[in-house]
């Protein structure tokens, strides 16, 4: 059993005729935080969207190559993308709780649709997920309130709880704090570190300092290519590539 949760091999992705990912080879460590950084349009978001088969939902989008999740290629024929997405959860840039659902239902919806019917079990899942996301104490008396009544940071943690409720193994986060104030962002960052004890976390960020703070490994993407990938301390102390150096020191463009 390898310690890599995800192994990406020769991954290419297109939007129509425009190639946005070029021959990406990357192995992602289990139970660690891997940060993906790079300038806008470098393909970092597309990359993580290839890891839960969300990329192909965009009209005209195409993928080639292999993505092994626990050794199984998620792009093999006969693999149901819906099943993959239950194993590989995703958190988005803008907190997006379901506006018409209560806090409770936001978290319970996933397990409910997956067939959990027993109210007690659901209560337990909701509570455990909210606790894991560090939100339980703040909302335990307001579970019936709408999810959008919460503050931005709380909404994002609600989204994390919602993702955790379907018991994923990998969490993909697409700039999860870019819409939040610094205090809320700090809470999410602390949460990410905690989650890495049990989950494989991949976070896309264009905040270089955030990548430095939260990640164990960091990858730098530029123009659809993986330029550099390594332990966070090494990359931020002595990047191997001149491009990475220029990007993280702000000498770009």
């Amino acid at each position: 059993m390898s310690t890599y949760k995800i192994e990406v091999e020769k991954l290419n992705a297109w939007f129509g005729s425009k190639q946005v990912l070029k021959n990406i080879d990357m192995k992602v460590k289990d139970r660690a935080v891997t940060a993906i950084m790079g300038p806008s349009g470098c393909g970092k978001t597309t990359f993580i969207r290839c890891l839960n088969r969300m990329h192909e939902l965009t009209p005209g989008a195409r993928v080639s190559g292999r993505v092994l999740l626990d050794g199984i290629n998620i792009y093999d024929d006969g693999i149901d993308p819906v099943q993959i997405r239950r194993k590989v959860g995703m958190i988005f840039q803008k907190p997006n709780p379901f506006p018409m659902l209560s806090i409770y239902d936001n978290v319970a919806l996933g397990p409910k649709l997956n067939g959990v019917k027993d109210r007690k079990t659901l209560d337990l899942i909701v509570r455990r997920s909210l606790e894991l996301a560090g939100l339980w104490d703040e909302v335990k008396n307001d579970l019936d309130k709408s999810g959008v009544s919460l503050s931005g940071g709380q909404q994002q943690r609600l989204c994390i709880a919602r993702a955790l409720a379907v018991e994923p193994e990998v969490l993909l986060m697409d700039e999860p704090t870019s819409a939040l104030d610094p205090m809320s962002a700090a809470k999410i960052e602390a949460l990410i570190r905690k989650l890495a004890e049990n989950y494989t976390v991949i976070i896309v960020t264009h905040n270089i300092q955030q990548a430095a703070r939260v990640s164990d490994y960091v990858a730098f993407f530029y123009l659809g290519e993986l330029i550099e990938y390594g332990p966070t301390k090494d990359v931020f102390e002595k990047p191997r590539s001149e491009l990475t150096e220029r990007y993280i020191t702000g000498k770009f463009g």
Binding site: Q209, F236, E237, K238, I248, T249
Partner: peptide, 9 residues
């Protein structure tokens, strides 16, 4: 500036 890479060095 929270220097990194060559700046930090």
């Amino acid at each position: 500036f929270q220097p990194v890479a060559s700046d930090l060095r």
